[in-house]
Design a protein around this nucleic acid. Structure first.
Lengths: 216, 216
DNA sequence: ATGTGTGTTTTGTGATCACAAAGCGAATTT
DNA sequence: AAATTCGCTTTGTGATCACAAAACACACAT
């Protein structure tokens, strides 16, 4: 009997492809806050009928990536400053815990990988590429948190990122960064030193800094 | 022009009714872990077609209330002990923060209401009603956290409850309680005294206690 | 100008159907 | 006896359609 040589390349249902593409766009700030979309237009873009388009949209609504009016229309959310503050606090709570759990398992290979990602972030900044910056920045965090071996917590953190996606675009479009966020260096340094309190503070600061200015 | 006298009583779409009913069942431990269900049987029970049944199921999958096999079949999840530990830690993180934010706004009316709920919990314990116990226990927590005025955080907390629902049933079926969890009394006492560190400890303990024993 | 009414168009909802794949059970083979 | 094969049944997926309600635009009246 033949074993499927690539079990990860399962057919990929249509609704899942739509979901994943939209999710990436939202999480990485490809879509501005308040952007409306119809189920038919989604289906048209992905060349599927309304059924899978509706499923993908509904899934994103359930995750807070899209908001829905009482009549069923979906759009990217426009977050109030109170909600931004809440989501920033959630990021701080969850990601500090994830970093703390990753610390004892963080070996040199991981730290080098994080430094690589940091240089990549610097490139995106130089290129003024907002979407690239957001994606690479989140990749830095995800790479660290994966070491925590805590999938449920990581999923929660990603859900918060998703909710903040369109808003992050508005933020990073405003504060034109010139250099690598220096808390990333602090995170790497704390990891090297095995300094847990320092790591917790660095992560909390990194996560909070940008969003604080946006919430006012 | 007439204003709708009950704006909250909008027609209620079929898929939403299915979703809400299933969500309650899962969150309050009405369904055991590992219980499978088909889309057609859901539709049959609620006298709707497969379309709204599928939407409700998909929404619950997105929230982690149901798990899905690669072939699209859904069932209540059977959580590993690692995942239970993670979810317990998330409860601790988020709910301690919610309680802390509720504290400065907690007036006498709220405290009295919490005490009422506590006597209600004692009744459910005397009646050996597992589902009633879980529901009333969560009502205690929700009542407190509503005062925090932090809807995004509360939604996250409820999502964790939802994921733990079927497992909670298995837990409370095992440890036949005899009396009101005494951390509930500690929570109320800390609220009365305005003692924030005490409140944080009491909430963390209450949230962690039961799940710790289940995770081994 | 502003608000109002009306007809048209757009849009989400849910039912139904065809299809393919997964699950399942019994009979058969090793 | 255990494993396998084959056929039937169950099940999820996605397309299509009818329908009702919401959104919209335009004309009209104030």
């Amino acid at each position: 009997m033949l074993i499927n040589p690539r079990p990860s390349e399962v057919p990929a249902a249509a609704h899942d492809r739509v979901y994943r593409t939209l999710r990436s766009r939202i999480m990485y700030g490809d879509i501005a806050p308040g952007q409306a979309m119809t189920l038919r237009s989604i289906g048209e873009e992905f060349e599927v009928s309304m059924t899978p388009a509706r499923e993908a949209a509904r899934r994103l609504v359930a995750e807070g990536a899209l908001s829905m009016t009482s009549s069923g229309r979906v759009s990217t959310p426009e977050l109030s400053s109170e909600r931004i503050e809440e989501l920033a606090a959630l990021r701080a709570l969850i990601e500090v815990e994830l970093a703390s759990r990753a610390l004892p398992r963080a070996h040199m290979a991981l730290i080098e990988r994080l430094q690589m990602i940091n240089t990549s972030i610097a490139e995106q900044i130089a290129r003024q590429d907002a979407v690239g910056y957001i994606r690479t920045n989140l990749e830095f965090h995800r790479t660290l948190y994966l070491r925590a071996q805590a999938p449920a917590m990581l999923a929660m953190a990603e859900q918060v990122w998703l909710q903040l996606g369109p808003t992050m675009r508005a933020l990073y479009g405003r504060l034109r960064r010139k250099e690598l966020p220096h808390f990333h260096r602090l995170i790497v340094a704390s990891l090297k030193a095995g300094d847990e309190p320092g790591l917790r503070l660095a992560v909390r600061s990194d996560v909070t800094q940008g969003l604080k200015m946006l919430a006012r």
